[in-house]
């Protein structure tokens, strides 16, 4: 097990409104840029965070604009592991049970002409780690991690 040093860099508390998605994206992409990611990687992180926050607004808060989303950015540096850019997003809405989630087969998805549910597929493709959590006090969390190329 790696014992890494975690440093919180910054955090943002924001209401669960779709019109604020652009602020959430800017907050995270500015931090990712300062962290040293290329524009291409910044774009991936930005999109993954958009998808996570969109799901919270839609599914956890059911478009209630008074919910609170908290985004915390930290870095983890281990001796033998890559430097990690860690984004933790918290909400107090309805929990998402990731144990009941299975990723769609995209061929089937298109055959049945489904829509929706693509956000989580994208998050997993764009980030190195995606982990859902649930804490006491009815707080949900999702952790999105991107490794900084050495």
């Amino acid at each position: 097990m790696t014992t890494g040093n975690t440093h919180t860099i910054e955090s943002l508390r924001i209401q669960s409104r779709t019109e604020l998605l652009s602020d959430m994206r800017t907050f995270v992409s500015d931090a990712a840029r300062r962290f040293g990611f290329s524009e291409n990687e910044v774009g991936k992180i930005e999109l993954a965070i958009d998808e996570a926050c969109t799901n919270i607004i839609k599914h956890a808060y059911k478009f209630n604009p008074d919910g609170i989303i908290e985004i915390r950015i930290s870095s983890q540096k281990g001796d033998s592991s890559p430097t990690k850019f860690v984004v933790d997003i918290y909400d107090s809405g309805i929990s998402f049970d990731s144990s009941k989630y299975t990723a769609p087969d995209m061929k089937e998805y298109f055959k049945k002409l489904r829509h929706g549910g693509l956000g989580i597929v994208l998050m997993k493709k764009l980030m190195d780690e995606v982990e859902y959590g649930h804490m006491s006090g009815q707080q949900n969390s999702i952790r999105l991690v991107k490794y900084l190329p050495s």
Binding site: L113, G116, L118, G119
Partner: peptide
């Protein structure tokens, strides 16, 4: 574009 945009295309293609 985020997946919300792609969802609109899926919604109308049929």
């Amino acid at each position: 574009i985020s997946s919300a945009g792609l969802g609109v295309l899926m919604q109308f293609i049929e």
